[in-house]
Design a protein around this nucleic acid. Structure first.
Lengths: 141, 141
DNA sequence: CTTTTTGCAAATGATTTGCATTAAC
DNA sequence: GTTAATGCAAATCATTTGCAAAAAG
């Protein structure tokens, strides 16, 4: 699911026998409003503005759910943190090994050969993304 | 430095005003013997066989040092773990979002455009790697 | 009403830090 | 001899788990 409406989200939940709680709707809304990456902590802050005492465990649980539903992608970052990203279109990342910052990179990368090789090895390949490692302007100085 | 001899490593350390301790030499040796990824914990186990009470903090410190020296690459995995990889040649990764396992993928990916775009934005791009996300044979079943 | 989902508090696991001691140079 | 590097124990931080109370269907 990468639907645009909240109604479709509610429906997708019900199809899985899951309940449409206010917490889930808000996390869904907040994540999709994002055009960048965010940590669970940041998403909690955003969600809490609309629903004062959502809890971090709920945020994590909902993000895992959204990932399974294909509405969010989880990106492991340096520093042992996960980042959540709701951008549906293919894009890549620049990650600074100094400060750990992750920035989007708009570029076309042909990953078809790589995907095909992965699949031929029995790996159920879902998406590919390029991570460029290096130092951001700040950390390079 | 991506030198092959241990002597060159000792020299590289001295050039930086750092000391060539047995711990550092052993971690260097153990990491280079690797042709896969390993966690700090696994590297500790391997190092401990040669030097019975190396400590985890030393392993981490040394790995960070080796990363700065370019002898090792640090790969963030799912599950908040870092993996260390001493392969010098370009290669890519398949990572299973089920169990977190990372496997090497031998494939050619043209990342030159992406690298160029990153650089043009002031990012000091060092390396690029493709991460294929999906489910491994086990987790797909 | 039944079963899922929540929030809270506590547990876990990877990595880091503080500090006295040891060992390179 | 000096100063950097080590090992240990304790701290930290992101994420997860257990469980009783609340709420969705």
């Amino acid at each position: 699911m990468s639907s645009v409406t909240e109604g479709a989200f509610v429906q997708a939940l019900h199809e899985r026998g899951l309940r449409a709680t206010p917490q889930r709707l808000i996390v869904y809304r907040v994540v999709r409003r994002l055009d960048d990456h965010a940590t669970a902590e940041q998403l909690l802050a955003a969600a809490a503005r609309e629903l004062p005492n959502v809890s971090l465990p709920t945020i994590y649980a909902t993000l895992d759910l959204l990932e399974e539903m294909g509405a969010v992608r989880k990106v492991p970052a340096f520093g042992g943190t996960m980042l959540y990203d709701a951008r549906g279109d293919a894009h890549h990342h620049m990650v600074c090994r100094g400060c750990g910052t992750v920035r989007d990179l708009e570029a076309d990368v042909d990953d078809r050969t790589a995907m095909a090789i992965a699949s031929s090895q029995g790996f159920r390949a879902e998406r590919a993304q390029l991570t460029i490692q290096g130092l951001c302007t700040n950390c390079a100085g």
